[in-house]
């Protein structure tokens, strides 16, 4: 099995977000960057599949600035065999990113291409699916359970009020959701071994794309609350407020 995992470097989910001077992106000063948490599920799936098969190759592909080399090495430390960095500042348009990644993966003989279901920075939730479309491969997105056997896969994805069960032949693209596995921590030996594993860098240039970020702002402050009423008779009014005013249910 030859497996690719696509990885993105993102701010730590605990990072405090400060809008940068351009008013369109975050101020990266002092922000810690980590592998996208959903991509860690994809990494774990790839490593576990190779371990189970006892043979094969796992490759991590990241699109990003040179700083993403460190993120790639985290994946290598977990156990991925080699890395490829597509050097680019990225794009707000997921399709442009997908085209660059598809270009890298095309014709390389991958049996399985794994992504996280989305990146926790831009919440775009699309690149994996788009890569599959561009490569004309079967794709199952947001997978919470995966079985690969005999050149085919079965998968489950959570949908509203149920679990969808899907199947397809390999080669295929899968984007991973929580639940699919528990990602391992890299071992200290793995961290030391990672620097000896191959990491190839290639510049790519993305198209202008059709999506432009015009501003980035912090969400509005919380407003003072209100007591809806007393006792169970206040419940219908509460539900109504949650539905129409707060729009959370």
């Amino acid at each position: 099995m030859k497996i690719a995992v696509c990885l993105k470097r993102v701010p730590d989910t605990t990072a405090k977000i400060v809008v940068g001077g351009d008013g369109k992106s975050i101020d990266e000063n002092g922000v810690k960057f980590v592998p996208n948490p959903y991509d860690e599920y994809a990494l774990e799936a790839a490593i576990a599949l190779k371990e189970k098969a006892g043979a094969g190759e796992t490759v991590v592909v990241a699109l990003g600035t040179d700083a993403a080399q460190e993120t790639i090495r985290t994946a290598l430390a977990m156990g991925i065999d080699r890395g490829v960095l597509l050097q680019s500042p990225g794009s707000a348009d997921g399709f442009e990113v997908a085209k660059a990644i598809a270009g890298e993966l095309k014709g390389q003989g991958y049996d399985l291409i794994l992504f996280g279901k989305m990146a926790v920075d831009d919440y775009n939730h699309q690149v994996g699916v788009m890569v599959a479309e561009l490569l004309e491969l079967p794709c199952v997105s947001a997978v919470s359970a995966l079985t690969v056997e005999g050149g085919a896969l079965t998968a489950e994805r959570e949908i509203e009020g149920g679990v969808e069960q899907l199947a397809c032949q390999l080669p295929a693209v899968v984007t991973a959701d929580k639940g699919i596995n528990t990602p391992r921590l890299p071992s200290l030996k793995g961290i030391m071994a990672a620097k000896k594993k191959p990491l190839e860098t290639k510049p790519v240039s993305l198209g202008a794309g059709s999506i432009t970020v015009t501003s980035l702002a912090l969400p509005p402050e919380r407003q003072a609350g209100k007591i809806v009423g007393e006792g169970p008779d206040a419940v219908p009014a509460l539900v109504q407020l949650l539905r129409t005013e707060a729009k959370v249910i």
């Binding site: 977000i17 975050i26 919440y123 432009t212 702002a217 912090l218 969400p219």
Partner: peptide, 14 residues
């Protein structure tokens, strides 16, 4: 919403 809702992005679709 982006960054787990910690920021709101405005975009133009061309």
């Amino acid at each position: 919403p982006v960054y787990a809702g910690k920021a709101i992005q405005k975009i133009t679709l061309g």
